[in-house]
Design a protein around this nucleic acid. Sequence first.
DNA 1: AGCAAGAATGTACGTTCGTACGCTCTCGAG
DNA 2: CTCGAGAGCGTACGAACGTACATTCTTGCT
Lengths: 185, 185
Amino acid sequence: MATGHTDPQRRERIIAATLDLIADEGVAGVSHRKIAARAGVPLGSMTYHFRGIDDLLREAFRRFTDDIVALFDAHLAPPTDRGQARTAVADLIHALLGGSRRDLVLTQELYTLAARRPAYRALTQEWMTRSRVHLERHFDPVTARQLDALIEGLTLHRALAQESQDHAFTLEAVTRITTTGRRAP
Amino acid sequence: MATGHTDPQRRERIIAATLDLIADEGVAGVSHRKIAARAGVPLGSMTYHFRGIDDLLREAFRRFTDDIVALFDAHLAPPTDRGQARTAVADLIHALLGGSRRDLVLTQELYTLAARRPAYRALTQEWMTRSRVHLERHFDPVTARQLDALIEGLTLHRALAQESQDHAFTLEAVTRITTTGRRAP
DNA sequence: AGCAAGAATGTACGTTCGTACGCTCTCGAG
DNA sequence: CTCGAGAGCGTACGAACGTACATTCTTGCT
């Protein structure tokens, strides 16, 4: 139609549609045409708004990581002591697992890209750094790194084995990893 | 050429080539033609030996998980006490990270498929079960689950952040997660 | 030697893909 | 009212894809 109208929402809609499509069919299933159909925009818009598929994927995943970091922030800002922080981390893990498989799927897709391509690895590194900043508000740097890894592993295993793991199990693991040496408060 | 000769190595070569290709270009980059070229077999062999691409991917990943489980076995069979077992686990983690990025990449690719498709999820579940059997030779079931998750997370984070983490750091994390309650020998 | 069986292959078809590019349409300045 | 400028779009092209299937070749039996 060529409205001639500058439409700033167009770009956003395309990015949102891209994430939805990745969640449904994976990065492998992404194509300009499918995204366009899902976003309700013409095919020509794809190359107009984005330099290419890769450009689009990077923007989409940046959006996604921003959302997850916001989740870390929301959970880890409130607690004021170590005990609360541990509970908050356990809550966070269950929040990540909670709703749909969507977040898990998107995370995996991103990691897969990152494992092979440095451009995406930069994204995951920044993500990890930002998450860790939140954890370091409550734990020392070494513990934060270990805890971060544990969160990753628990989330992943829980999602791949559908044996449900309850909150107590998670909290126990978090407590162990954040308990240093022979003693702990 | 149609040698008419039954060649049992043919199938193996195709599977090996598939894993190599996935490691290099990802599941998204897999095609009958590329695999055939890499394995040095004609395109027609693809549909002859495998029902389709999906069939081939499943067989390839089964081969891969078998190899990793063997690695678990090799590391976790020898130790006889808890301390040795902890060291063995730390060694195992560094072995997983050790050589190339290949194993990490393949693992991610598999998880990505598993996150969305039950047929592949069955594969990861079986894999987890078999790994855990090895861990449970040295640790109680709950600890084994937590440790398994930790191994996953440490491996992944180490690979995505290229900040190197040394053996001492890994052993410390393993020790924490395998130390229950307030005290431990 | 001749031949049936079936292992292995080459090729061709219909689809889908990313992207380039010439075109249309709207808007604000004059 | 006129008319650039540039935002936005439809289409077409070449390449790559998965798969089916007719065909070729070897082998073991008679």
